[in-house]
Amino acid sequence: MANWVLKGLRTGIRTTGYPSRPERAAGVSPGRPHGASLNSIEQADTLVERCPTRAIERQEGGVAVDHRRCVYCLRCQRDGMETVAPWDASYEWATEGLDEAASAKKLQRAFGRSLHIRFLDAGACSACVSEARQLNNPYYNMHRLGLFTTPTPRNADVLLVSGPVSDAMRLPLRKAYEAMPAPKRVVAIGACAIFGGVFGSSFAASGGASQIIPVDVIVPGCPPPPLAILHGLLLVVGRKPPAQPVSRPSDQVMEPA
């Protein structure tokens, strides 16, 4: 047993400084596509055409990117593309739900700084599950921020939903939401939970959590990295402002704040 204690001590503290300080380690986030100012319409059209989920849209002076619809196929980046969308290295992506007015209103201070979180997998590809699980690893250690998981939605403040909501998970999702005491918030993580992702709306999936229950905060990404999920949770407790999900050609490319 002493070995383990020693091993733990020798490893030292690895925890990120976020949210007090920005995390600059390489690979914590894949970054996100950003709106680009382009001169030629053809270039813009190529980008728009390349995007399988219509996240890229033509706008005056170039293309705008709706990050919420991005599934990280990286096709606007790679594969012999001459024109590539600029890419920012941020991870603070969480924003209000698709019904922005309602979520913004609901996000008024309802909680103190601590949250109890119930995670629910509604048909996710398990990359989201894996990223959410990383929140408990020593790098992110969400406990230090007063964020805890709870086994039952009865004690939960936040329902963390991933996946496009498969048919069989519709009932459990609704039951879990109803079992939560008020005030309660729903955080949808990943493209699937936001709009159905690559699975869309079909006979087997509902096309996003908001089709079943009201969603207050969304964390775009496929999958969103742990820091982005953390940002979403901090947004719920009002410790961080929401991000701008749509980047226009004129917007500045952001660095991690």
Partner: peptide
């Protein structure tokens, strides 16, 4: 199982 059946093969 198959709580997460998303019908990948069909869609």
């Amino acid at each position: 199982f198959f709580y997460k059946y998303r019908g990948v093969e069909k869609i």
